[in-house]
């Protein structure tokens, strides 16, 4: 029994180190591929013919759709990390959760911003209280809440648990919020919102979208791994500071 816990603790200690090594080796490649794919996707988007209805603004789609996708994907990733923290107490899970929050918030904010800029020429207004927009906005608020919580608590152990619980409560609530916002929206009958329904996206538009979506997702992973590495180093600094203080304390009386 004691042996298993000790060996478990050893792997726990070793894990972040091994993780750092792996990240150090793969990160440049990942970053290069991510940038390449993203620029290729965007370039393909500019080479593609313009939409007959939306003109050149359809090019905003190659940003907006990947951002919106990542904003949801990042929250799911954080929820998985939260489960990892609470159930398996994996040391990297909580680092992943904390590192993902600001990145997710940025992508969500960008999704809202690009959507808003797209909506201005298309709908004639910067913002509509449309069901989908409102849900994403609420998602953004939840990101900010998690961000505020992780920054407010100093003790990493405690903040990990708190953020994990909050994330899981949020993920349970997302379907409810989505449903209720849609219900509320049909109730209020938005006055004059043109629906952006492209039932069939032409393949010439779809391919660039797919490539840029993969590219942006890889950019997200690159940023996330970098942020995780910074977070691990931050914790190391804290541990080393504590050790230095303890050593100084021990030396002082002697």
């Amino acid at each position: 029994m004691a042996e298993t816990t000790i060996s478990g603790r050893l792997t726990n200690l070793a894990n972040p180190t091994r993780f750092l090594e792996l990240v150090g080796r793969f990160l440049p490649w990942l970053a290069a591929i991510a940038l390449l794919l993203t620029f290729a996707g965007l370039a393909m988007g500019f080479a593609a013919p313009e939409d007959y209805q939306q003109g050149s603004t359809v090019r905003i789609m190659y940003l907006h759709v990947p951002f919106a996708w990542i904003s949801m994907f990042c929250y799911m990733l954080m929820a998985a990390a939260a489960l990892g923290t609470l159930v398996w107490k994996h040391p990297l899970a909580d680092v992943a959760l904390k590192a993902a929050a600001p990145i997710g918030a940025t992508f969500t904010a960008l999704a809202l911003a690009t959507g808003s800029i797209w909506g201005r020429p298309m709908w004639g207004t910067w913002w509509v209280w449309d069901g989908r927009l409102t849900s994403v906005f609420v998602l953004f608020l939840m990101y900010l809440g998690i961000l505020a919580l992780t920054r407010a608590l100093d003790d990493p152990q405690r903040s990990a648990r708190a953020a994990a619980i909050l994330t899981l409560v949020g993920v349970i609530n997302i379907p409810i919020i989505k449903f209720s916002v849609e219900w509320w929206n049909t109730l209020h009958q938005p006055a004059s919102v043109m629906r952006l329904d492209g039932p069939t996206i032409h393949p010439s538009l779809l391919w660039p979208l797919l490539v840029s979506a993969i590219g942006f997702t890889l950019i997200f992973f690159t940023l996330h791994l970098m942020a995780m590495r910074a977070e691990i180093w931050r914790r190391r600094v804290a541990v080393m500071r504590r050790m230095a203080a303890k050593r100084a304390e021990n030396r002082a009386p002697a």
């Binding site: 609420v138 939840m142 809440g145 409560v169 949020g170 609530n173 919020i177 449903f179 209720s180 916002v181």
Partner: peptide, 16 residues
């Protein structure tokens, strides 16, 4: 902070 954390979660309650 509690208010900020809780507010997005109670939106459905407010709506209904």
């Amino acid at each position: 902070l509690v208010s900020v954390l809780v507010l997005p979660l109670v939106i459905p309650v407010l709506i209904f």
